[in-house]
Design a binder for these strands. Structure first.
Lengths: 339, 339
DNA sequence: CTTGGCACTCTGCCCCGACGAGTGCCACTG
DNA sequence: CAGTGGCACTCGTCGGGGCAGAGTGCCAAG
């Protein structure tokens, strides 16, 4: 159905449209891309591509424009990985190397990504549940109130104040601290419940009931309500593509303000090796139906710390942005693993 | 120079222009506002107002438009406080009452403000330096590494990992904890240096040197590098006024992404009783020259915890927005003081 | 000082025609 | 049979001319 030349034509259309942002006609295309055939032939191929739904034209006598389906095919089969320029590599390195703490790393990363891709950048903080415990501190604020301070291997520090169902003595808390500390050190939060499950049994009978309840509160707090944080940058880049969002800039901005939406975008990303692309209507989020989203996980191969990516017009440089997103993810992954 | 009627005309122009967003002509104005004079008279007054620089007209035969100077006069002398509607009061209360922790309060506040004013809302977290210490925890992570956890009276929890110039024993740290704890409890961070200045003298001689150095690191960390945080919401509202920012939406978005800029906007606000308004060119921030900024402090009268406000087109409902900003600030101030 | 009248100046809008880009189709060719 | 050149046709864009309406500025009269 689609022979090689037709695919070549589709690629040419996508590339030209992405760079010029104008519907591309048969003549210009035949000239610019040295396809070795006449415009008439290109027209026939275009007709076929349109028949299949890969391109459309806005009106009878305008050039062709890729559809979401066309972009999809392009991304899946036609785009070649675009190696980063030396300048880009340098930018990544110099941007990230001076980072102090985790906050700083994330802030720099999100700015870097926005600057590099000229799109809106989104970076998820290393997910709590997938991180391991480096230190867990329990502070006795008041008889029935504890402060938990958790430091993860990715450098994230999270604190939570807990109201307990019963009062504790300082000794009880000290007991808790060592018990939890020894069992949880180095353990990933998802595995935390298993790691402390033997606790009630091995504890002195006297404090068993209160310990059980404290334990459930602690686990609930840290494991079941892990607070996901997200950083955003480069929304100003949306105006760069104002033409791509005729009257749909508002819903995009609105969607980007919703934590939930951003989490949804990055939430499904677990694999740091493959870059995911959602194109236009493929997006499940209503307000982002006019955009494309490029995401990837970062962190060790087996289990990513979190996800990051960019949001931009469907008319984006997929090859370039995918490469940039992946490169940044790699650097950040290494940076955090080394920390 | 400017008699009462001329001022009345200016007010009418501002109000009409704000609501219709179209240059307002003498005839329509005389009719809609029952000034008791004919359009011709209004024209004369307009000419005088234009002479003085309070209004202009885009071209010869268009209506008049207020200048920044005109808005300024309007804000300073002509706008009457617009009482909040019952619905607005209810919105504020129900929006804020279920807030859990400080993060939650700030997040809700900024959303509320954006929704209420239909502008971009900015809320500064309670400034560390102006808050008082409710609890200071010192955790001994490693021989020469401490974790400081500070809880303020406004509910803000801040942690910092410190590298020390010398190693400490657990006992030393315990010593530190009680020494700092007893001296700093209830003390505002700005006053912290004074509160602990006697510490070296009263400590056992053995640990004096190390204590002095720890003290300086602690104070430096908490007092001199107070991390200011800011929440932003409602950027999508900018598109609502797209007509007000012909080609200047980008610089506005860019400015709003800069923490520094936002801090500058709110930084000078110390007084919770007066609402500040910066109009158009009055703004020191380049990118915000096409906007107006309404800010106010929140917190106890004497010293505000922080600032909050909105950013919108110069053509904004000043009376309404000022009232809304002030009302929200009051509620938040009370909420945090009561917490 | 206010007012009604009047001439004048613009802008916005609509219609029109010319232009050009691009298509679809068809007949022709190697 | 795929590829090609030619040709009629469609449609959007651009510029000009004309028209209506809004609004002003000025002036002379009350």
């Amino acid at each position: 159905m689609l022979d090689d030349r037709k695919l070549e034509v589709l690629r040419a259309i996508v590339e030209d449209f992405v760079s010029t942002h104008e519907p591309v006609g048969s003549k210009a295309l035949a000239e610019r891309h040295r396809l070795g055939v006449s415009p008439a032939t290109v027209r026939n191929d275009m007709a076929a591509l349109e028949e299949e739904g890969y391109i459309t034209h806005p009106h009878t006598s305008a050039g062709r424009v890729p559809t979401d389906k066309g972009y999809r095919l392009f991304v899946d089969r036609l785009s070649t990985v675009k190696p980063l320029s030396a300048a880009e590599r340098r930018a990544i390195q110099s941007f990230l190397e001076g980072a102090a703490d985790l906050d700083d790393v994330v802030r720099r990363t999100v700015r870097l990504l926005a600057q590099l891709t000229r799109q809106v950048a989104v970076v998820q903080y290393p997910s709590l549940s997938r991180s391991a415990v480096r230190h867990l501190e329990i502070v006795h604020l008041a008889p029935s109130r504890l402060l938990l301070v958790l430091i993860t291997d990715t450098g994230r520090v999270e604190q939570r104040v807990l109201e307990l169902p019963a009062e504790l003595s300082d000794d009880d808390v000290a007991e808790l601290r060592t018990a939890f500390g020894s069992r949880l050190h180095g353990v990933r939060l998802v595995d935390a419940p298993a790691a402390v499950s033997d606790l009630p049994a091995s504890a002195p009978p006297g404090i068993r009931p209160v310990l059980t309840s404290v334990m459930s509160v602690v686990l609930e707090t840290l494991v079941e309500q892990p607070e996901e944080r997200i950083a955003l940058a480069g929304t100003a880049n949306l105006t760069r593509h104002a033409l791509d969002f005729p009257h749909t800039l508002r819903p995009v901005l609105e969607a980007l303000e919703e934590q939930v939406v951003l989490l949804k975008l990055l939430g499904e990303v677990h694999d740091p090796t493959t870059v995911h692309v959602k194109i236009g209507e493929e997006n499940s989020v209503e307000g982002l139906r006019s955009t494309s989203v490029v995401t990837v996980g970062y962190g060790p191969e087996a289990s990513a710390y979190g996800g990051l990516g960019v949001v931009g017009p469907t008319r984006m440089d997929y090859a370039g942005n995918m490469a940039q997103v992946r490169a940044v993810a790699r650097y950040v992954g290494e940076l955090l693993a080394g920390a």
